[in-house]
């Protein structure tokens, strides 16, 4: 390719790209609708739900508006869940005075209710266990594997979705410190 031809192509590309860059805000405005949408993904409002504990008490996500909530999907046959739960307990002990809540949603459609209740009770966890008896919350959160952890900020928006063993004590502590620091600012 000779020099002149290259210069013509380069200038054309530059002009077209600059035009696209400047026209983007007009042609493709960022959707305002997304700001009020709920979806199980970072940045969206966490889908709302109301579930019962094994004892029959009702808990709604909305009850915890204004404080950070961890929605933790788990099953009693899931070893990764079981190895993560003691860590959750210690973080819960540490941060619950500052309003932090854990809703441990048992995927009851894929579990045996009695084993799940036994597992939770025998370990003496003090956070809230909820039963997703018809799988509707599991569906609303598009859960593909247990454990799936959805951290919801005080403003009701999802800040993190962690699939699998990534929901460690260290990670949770770090994110909670950030969230609570942001809130107190």
């Amino acid at each position: 390719m000779n020099k002149t031809r290259f210069i013509i192509i380069a200038i054309t590309l530059t002009v077209l790209s600059l035009a696209w860059l400047l026209l983007t805000p007009t042609l493709f405005p960022v959707a305002d609708a997304d700001a009020s949408r709920s979806a199980p993904h970072r940045g969206f409002y966490a889908p709302s739900f109301t579930l019962e504990t094994p004892q029959g008490d009702q808990h709604a996500l909305e009850d915890y508006q204004g404080q950070p909530v961890l929605v933790f999907f788990w099953a009693s046959w899931c070893s990764v869940c079981k190895s993560a739960m003691p860590g959750l307990e210690s973080v819960y002990q540490e941060f619950s005075p500052q309003g932090f809540t854990i809703l441990a949603v048992n995927t009851t459609t894929q579990d045996i209710l009695s084993s799940a209740v036994n597992e939770f009770a025998s370990k003496g966890y003090t956070y809230t266990m909820l039963l997703d008896q018809d799988g509707s919350v599991t569906n609303a959160y598009r859960m593909r594997a247990v454990p799936t952890s959805v951290l919801v900020g005080p403003d009701g928006r999802v800040t993190d979705v962690v699939i699998g063993s990534g929901i460690s004590e260290g990670f949770l502590r770090a994110r909670l410190s950030q969230l609570l620091a942001q809130e107190s600012e």
Partner: peptide, 21 residues
């Protein structure tokens, strides 16, 4: 470096294979 407190509590988590940290 961003979250030093995490590792002060639990040194083991520095080398854990957790993909999120």
């Amino acid at each position: 470096l961003k979250n030093p407190a995490v590792f002060v509590n639990n040194l083991f988590s520095l080398v854990s294979l957790t993909p999120s940290m």
